[in-house]
Nucleic acid binder design. Sequence first.
DNA 1: CCTTGACTTAAAGTTAACTCTAAGTAGTAA
DNA 2: TTACTACTTAGAGTTAACTTTAAGTCAAGG
Lengths: 140, 140
Amino acid sequence: MGYRIGELSKLIGVSEHTLRYYEKEGLVVPDRDKNNVRNYSEHNKLWAEFILHMKETGMSMEDLKNYTKLWESGEEGTVAMIDILTNHRDKVKKQIEIYKKNLDLLNKKIDFYQSSLEENRSANLYETFVDRKGTDEELK
Amino acid sequence: MGYRIGELSKLIGVSEHTLRYYEKEGLVVPDRDKNNVRNYSEHNKLWAEFILHMKETGMSMEDLKNYTKLWESGEEGTVAMIDILTNHRDKVKKQIEIYKKNLDLLNKKIDFYQSSLEENRSANLYETFVDRKGTDEELK
DNA sequence: CCTTGACTTAAAGTTAACTCTAAGTAGTAA
DNA sequence: TTACTACTTAGAGTTAACTTTAAGTCAAGG
């Protein structure tokens, strides 16, 4: 039961190097088997996945380390855990607003340049038409 | 007319160092006055602000450099500019989805730990009540 | 027996985007 | 005159989060 480092690495999509690095930093510390081989439990896997989700929204290693320590400390860490989570939630909310605002900006820019392309295309068609008229003779 | 580096720095919230760095990278290149002092035009300011907005959503210096060069090349760069913008827009859209997904996750976690706190508080109140009973005599 | 996958430590390298330092010069405003 | 703001080059330093390298050892499966 449990996963070896290579398995988990493939399952969750991070390198073995990174898993060892996370272990060194205290984020995901698996048990070892009799040969000292890392044995990642289901909990280890879930925890690693949670960490990756938090990283997707830019939570720092620092916060993740603190959070993990608090979790390990048991109930007495709960308030501080909630604190980290709510702080991060606020950041994520703000980020979403910023991203949305700039998505609008991008859409406007894209529209603008696409319209300018179309105007040019019309202009070019017109010019082509004019040119054709001028060189029409050759096409007869 | 125009802004000196210190003014613009304050107006748009980036350091003078950074403005000089952006100039070196070809992103925002102001004219100079007779004493070789940078004179940022209104256009320079708008361009800088646009760059900062794009950076807010993680556009790389690389893309911003290319984009700026294309803009400077005039109409012939328009198609490639649209390409950069639409690529980036897709990235931004994906990021928003990821952020939203993880905002949900954060909310669930926070709810979970808050409930666990409340359960504990109830439990503690009960224990307190029991304790009181035991030590009630002293209060008479 | 050989290959595969795992293990170790310690340290160096990578990347992006700044950020700062040094060491000096120069114009402008009070 | 003093203070302020700006200028220059060139290169070193910073930060986060990996990522890689070296140089080896070890155990199981086919």
